[in-house]
């Protein structure tokens, strides 16, 4: 099937199999490999991207469902070589270790702040429940998100 969608600001028109998942389309058709696959039950959130501005697990969406949509992956966040405030907050607060969950975690965190611009710690923890990390114990991830919120990242 033919689909046409915008990914990180670039329009792509592609021929895909109906069963192709959005995550596989992003990774294999477009070569954008920051978005990772960590499970097969939509549990881990490593594949989280933005679909029309909202966080989705791209392993739960077919590429054909994203036809005519606007997709943002972590590769699309930095502007003119400057990291998004959430990326900066993760770096400054050591919100990542092995880096595998990080792209999905950052995308989920940005989406969370769009919903709740100044969340409490508990709201961050509940908001990120669907994104698993094995390295950080979440401590510095939560700290990163709260830090980004305090610096007004919600508007970005």
């Amino acid at each position: 099937m033919k689909i046409s969608l915008t990914v990180n600001g670039n329009l792509h028109t592609s021929e895909v199999e109906p069963r192709t998942l959005l995550v596989h389309y992003i990774r294999e058709h477009l070569g954008l490999t920051a978005t990772n696959v960590g499970c097969d039950t939509s549990s881990c959130g490593a594949c989280t991207v933005h679909l029309d501005g909202e966080a989705v697990k791209s392993c739960t969406i077919l590429a054909v469902q994203a036809d005519e949509c606007d997709v943002t992956t972590v590769e699309g966040l930095a502007k003119n070589g400057e990291m998004h405030p959430m990326q900066k907050a993760f770096m400054e607060n050591h919100g990542l270790q092995c880096g595998f969950c990080t792209p999905g975690m950052v995308m989920a965190a940005i989406s969370l702040l769009r919903e709740i611009p100044n969340p409490s710690e508990e709201e961050v923890r509940i908001g990120l429940e669907g994104n698993l990390c094995r390295c950080t114990g979440y401590h510095n991830i939560v700290k990163s998100v709260l830090d980004a919120a305090s610096k007004g990242a919600a508007g970005r």
Binding site: R27, E28, G31, T33, A34, T35, N36, V37, V74, E75, L77, A78, M83, Q87, F90, M91, L96, C98, G99, F100, T102, P103, V106
Partner: peptide, 17 residues
């Protein structure tokens, strides 16, 4: 090492396309 992981992602074995 963080800027890479945060912007283009790591190069894990599955990423060696």
């Amino acid at each position: 090492e963080d800027p890479k992981f945060l912007t283009t992602g790591g190069q894990y074995v599955d990423d060696l396309l």
